Simulated scan of single mutants.
Amino acid sequence: MKKLAYSGIVLLLSLILLQNFTSKMQEGKLLQTAQTFLNTLEQVQIERATFSLADEERYNWNYTPVARQGLPIKDMTKIQQEAAFALMRASLSEKGYKKAQQVRELEAILRGVEGREVGDAYRDPDNFYFTIFGKPAHDEAWGWRFEGHHISLNFSSVSDKIVSVTPTFFGSNPAKVPSGPKKGWRILEPEEDLGRALVKSLSQDQQQTALIAKEAYPDIVTTNEKIAKINKKEGLLYNQMNKQQQEQLMQLIEVYYNVHQPEIVQEAILSMEKAGLENIHFAWAGSYDVGEKHYYRIHGPTFVIEYDNTQNDANHIHTVIRDLEKDFGEDILSQHYEEAHK
């Protein structure tokens, strides 16, 4: 790989390790926290919270306020909630855990913005669900999901190791809180600001290449499909950027991935490197101006990152990471199952 790409990767990995040094993984092993959570549940709760690993429900992920399968926070005792949150901490970086809790907090703010009554189940910070797939045990393949309005975190594991963390979805409505004690709060601020800073740093010729539509798409293109599909690669290539722009692009990618544990982030970046940074496209649609509808995506051979801010007068953000090779860890988990059950 060229020296420029190599130096960018080394810098990015160093930042990731530094920023995630305080990761809560050290507080407890993943497998142990999953087992502890299940052990706090009553039988009727276990029946709600668990599915087989092969169940199609595992792929039924959503980011809108729809009916869900699993056990919601509101139906847990305090001890059960603490055990559930420990599982989140064991699976995410501290930044990721904080962001997930901020999405929950934003539901109460949205309830006020929409003029709903306190206790309205449609905008309830405790209406977020934990779902376990398979049996968390040594030498077993299993997974789990944390999901509610504007969040869907999907983890696939073998024993005590996370092997896949996608789809990873975070949303924010409002993207910028318009009034009240939290006025001006933006939980997805870096995703918006760094993306805009990158497109504005481009020359006119570069922008013409990066711009794939004058109007922003109404939502992320991959939606909540089981298999992520982008029909064609388009936009500005990594090698068509100058050094500063390449570093900005890698910084933006890091913003999306640093919600996960450091080892997960390293694997993702190294996978990008192996597939060739020169094959990564940055694409933009819509306006470059603050407060106007816009969309962007970062598309490489192994992954797609999407960002969309068009709804509610461009004050409603959707973001997602999709792994084009191992969403839901299907190949890895299938291989493990075949080898373990020969």
Rank of each mutant, 00 (worst) to 15 (best):
I317Q: 06
D313V: 06
S334A: 15
Y337L: 15
T310W: 01
S334V: 13
N315D: 15
H316R: 08
L333S: 09
L333C: 07
R322C: 01
H316L: 05
L324R: 06
D331F: 12
E325H: 11
F328H: 12
E330Y: 10
E339G: 00
Q335P: 01
E339Q: 14
N312P: 04
V320A: 06
N309C: 14
N309A: 10
E330S: 10
D308P: 01
Q311N: 07
D323F: 06
Y337M: 12
F328V: 02
L324Y: 04
T310A: 10
R322W: 07
I317S: 01
D313F: 12
E325P: 00
V320M: 01
I321D: 04
Q311P: 02
D331L: 07
K326R: 07
H336Q: 15
I332M: 09
I317P: 07
D323V: 08
I332K: 09
I317T: 15
H336T: 04
L324T: 02
D313P: 00
N312D: 15
R322N: 09
D331W: 08
L333W: 11
D323T: 03
I317Y: 03
R322V: 10
T319F: 09
Q335D: 11
N309S: 14
Q335L: 14
I332G: 01
I317N: 03
I332W: 02
F328I: 04
A314N: 11
E339P: 00
H336Y: 13
H318L: 07
L333H: 02
A314R: 08
D327S: 13
N312Q: 15
F328R: 10
H318K: 08
H316Q: 10
I317E: 03
D327A: 14
N315K: 06
E325F: 12
Q311V: 10
N309G: 04
D327M: 12
T319N: 08
E325M: 11
N315T: 14
I317K: 04
Q335G: 02
K326G: 14
I332C: 05
T310H: 02
G329M: 08
H336C: 06
D327T: 08
G329V: 10
H316P: 00
D327H: 05
N315Q: 06
E325D: 13
D313W: 03
L324W: 10
I332A: 11
Y307H: 05
E330C: 05
D327V: 08
F328A: 03
I321E: 03
G329Q: 10
F328T: 10
K326P: 00
E338L: 10
N315P: 06
I317R: 08
S334E: 15
V320L: 04
F328D: 00
L324P: 02
N309H: 11
A314W: 08
I321M: 04
D331Q: 14
T310G: 05
V320E: 09
G329W: 07
H316K: 09
Q311W: 03
H318G: 06
D323C: 08
N315H: 07
Y307L: 05
E325S: 11
T319S: 11
H316S: 14
T319V: 04
Q311H: 06
S334K: 13
Y307I: 00
R322L: 01
F328K: 11
A314T: 01
N312S: 15
D323N: 13
E339S: 11
N315R: 11
